[in-house]
Design a protein around this nucleic acid. Structure first.
Lengths: 202, 202
DNA sequence: GTCTATACAAAGATAGAC
DNA sequence: GTCTATCTTTGTATAGAC
């Protein structure tokens, strides 16, 4: 009696494993073989759910982007969440990635290998990046209007700094293994947007 | 009568092509096959110069890091080069990467795939990142002492922001194709270090 | 120093039985 | 929806001739 979902249960599990593999080891490491082993089926069974690797990759990104957008839209439209609080909440998943010592942002991981990817995937990752930078721009502008942030420059330009710094920090930290890398960058970002120390969450 | 170099001419050409391949398409795309085709020899001939792929990758990073270090050491020790000028010169290769629309920083490209790499390579990339962040820290401190930069926070923390923002910007720009991505980030970085507009180079 | 020939593994993908 | 079996390509690497 439950309504038929677009994706079957197995399809969801495939997406879960594929997402994790990309985040931990990159797109090329997301092989049908590895996915099949982890969920206990055979390679060709995956093809039944996703016709080829590009389609699977696209589905992973689309799902990830959708999940993220939902949360970001909610944060922005909720009047109970101030701009400085929204920014702090935005940092949370990045901090979780860094703490795991193994993951990066899915789209950050994919961006590395974007030149060997089918165009639809690339377009989807691009949309992800653009929507994040736009969201940050809106939050920065709102926070400045409400005197929570204090900066002079164009919010769109500053938003790009924030986003790139976070993505870069995950990348660098994965190599150096220094758990303070992202934390330091976030501290510096807070200074850059002019968030006053006494208004900061942890 | 020319002194025998450590690397033969062919070895140098292999390194050149390998470096470019990593920057443009990643470590996995740096295959013996592709390298051989580009310099007009056969696959096994490469093995004669580098015993395996890991050794070749390591040699590429070591050479790249050495080249970079040489320039950075020179910039820092030259009294004729002010801190703000040194920072601007540091941006130059990043701007060139972005303009090419195809390359990223070699170590930025490698960091993406670091989990599938031999430990010596990883260590070399780590040293690269650390030396860059240390160099930036020194430049920022010197510039602040000489009243060229104006910031309150720890120079080491701010250096991490600058470095991660640049690496992240190349990554994001490669996907979005937006040529203003890095330029905007650099503008925001200049604001963050408190470089006054009238003291800025282009 | 470069070659041919070859071994071996892993990848994406297809056909067709159950 | 999952399986076995197989194909094709590409990758790293080795042996040994020239």
């Amino acid at each position: 009696m439950t309504p038929k979902k677009a994706g079957t249960d197995t399809a969801e599990r495939i997406l879960d494993v594929a997402e994790e593999l990309i985040q931990m080891r990159g797109y090329v490491a997301m092989s049908f073989q590895t996915i099949a082993e982890r969920i206990g089926i055979r390679k060709p069974s995956i093809i039944h759910h996703f016709p080829n690797k590009g389609a699977l990759g696209l589905a992973v990104v689309a799902r990830y982007r959708g999940r993220y957008n939902e949360v970001m839209d909610q944060l922005k439209s909720d009047p109970a969440v101030s701009a400085d609080r929204a920014l702090q909440l935005y940092f949370t998943p990045f901090l979780e990635f860094a703490a795991s010592q193994e993951k990066v942002c899915l789209c950050g991981a994919l961006a590395c290998e974007v030149r060997g990817m089918p165009e639809p995937m690339r377009a989807e990752i691009k949309r992800f990046f653009e929507s994040h930078q736009r969201w940050l721009e809106d939050i920065l502008r709102e926070g400045r209007d409400k005197d929570l942030f204090h900066f002079e420059e164009n919010p769109a330009v500053l938003a790009r700094l924030v986003f790139c710094a976070l993505q870069g920090a995950l990348l660098v930290q994965r190599t150096t293994g220094d758990s303070a890398q992202l934390e330091d960058v976030i501290e510096a970002v807070k200074n850059s947007v002019g968030l006053l120390p006494n208004e900061r969450d942890t």
